[in-house]
Design a protein around this nucleic acid. Structure first.
Lengths: 195, 195
DNA sequence: CCCGTTCTGGACCGAACGGTCAAGAAGTCG
DNA sequence: CGACTTCTTGACCGTTCGGTCCAGAACGGG
């Protein structure tokens, strides 16, 4: 009965995400969003509500995709410890990725004070990541790659902190070499070989 | 000969810093800056130039003060390793501090892409911090608190990453307990007791 | 005491902001 | 095929943005 949408919601969210990612929330104008999505204001508002709602939608989408990706990687990893290592090294493995950082980290830093929803979303997301890391470390313990007497969850939090730090450093434009060095050094300490 | 300024530059920079810190760069308007500083637009522009220049001034000021504080703390520390521990635990030691995060980290996350000056300033500042940490770890090695065969500078980078991660987590509103746990766990791994 | 210089406060500017709305296009179903 | 519903487009709104500028106040030097 109604006229169907001419656009794909997921596609619009993806297009718009790039804008928020590169420019931040406040510096992204509705014109930017229109240009990126190819939609008019009316369509944008009709489908997603105001700028803030659209942004939250994008952020939740991003977090969800991220969590899914991490779980897939863990499932596909040969060993739990490999997954953890890749997780920490990841941000320092390609230039553009390192420079752009993480949408969640960037916008949390920008908005945590003024948009409690964003802080809450970040907390949720980091807890989810902590859970995946805990699973991975648990598995690594069973596989003999991490000391069996370590507290997997505490260790997971430390690993997450290290990764977030690498992400933050990558955003400054630090060289990939230095980034990789920092990541490897942290990993060497956090996950000492048991053998 | 000229009419003297009625305000104190350092005081204005400090007042304005609070605004940028809490709201971020883009979301802070000139009206906010005027209200915070008590100055008119004319005075603000006459003394500091445009918004961007004022912000960079604030940021450099902040970094410089930070570096000075770290050096003083290191000089005053009983042992090098104490300084490093306090450095990592710091962000999780008081609520408001944890929520506000670090002005440099926040604005780097917001602006690194759009204002290369900010990224460069962040790089400079983190290198300075790395130097202080390296000194501290070097001292800690001499004092027998850190394994003598570790590379102090690499370790310093890992410590910095961990601290930045704690700062990022603190900004999400994570409880101080969890923050402290993550910090302590990371420290236990990064700086294992030698004795 | 007066001149020159600088500082101050706020009026003012054009542009861009986020958001609304209405008119028309485009589908779907009876 | 016509009517109903939704979607699309872009004109339009008031507000706020960063920035300029000027008239007058405030001070120091001669």
């Amino acid at each position: 009965m109604p006229r169907p949408r001419e656009f794909d919601e997921a596609g619009v969210v993806a297009a718009v995400r790039q804008e928020f990612w590169d420019k931040g929330y406040a510096a992204t104008s509705l014109d930017d969003l229109m240009r990126a999505s190819g939609l008019g204001k009316g369509s944008l508002y009709g489908a997603f509500g105001d700028k803030r709602s659209l942004f939250l939608r994008v952020l939740r989408d991003y977090d969800e995709a991220n969590d899914r990706m991490l779980r897939e990687r863990l499932a596909a990893a040969k060993r739990g410890v490999d997954f953890v290592r890749d997780f920490v090294r990841g941000p320092g493995s390609d230039v553009t990725g390192a420079r752009r950082g993480c949408l969640l980290a960037n916008t949390t830093a920008e908005l945590a004070m003024s948009m409690p929803d964003v802080a809450a979303e970040a907390r949720r997301s980091y807890e989810a990541t902590t859970r995946v890391l805990t699973e991975a470390l648990d598995r690594a313990q069973r596989e003999g790659d991490v000391e069996a007497d370590a507290d997997a969850e505490e260790l997971a939090r430390a690993v997450l902190a290290a990764q977030l730090g690498i992400v933050a450093l990558g955003r400054t434009g630090m060289s990939l070499d230095e980034l990789a060095t920092a990541a490897d050094c942290a990993l060497r300490r956090l996950l000492p070989a048991t053998g």
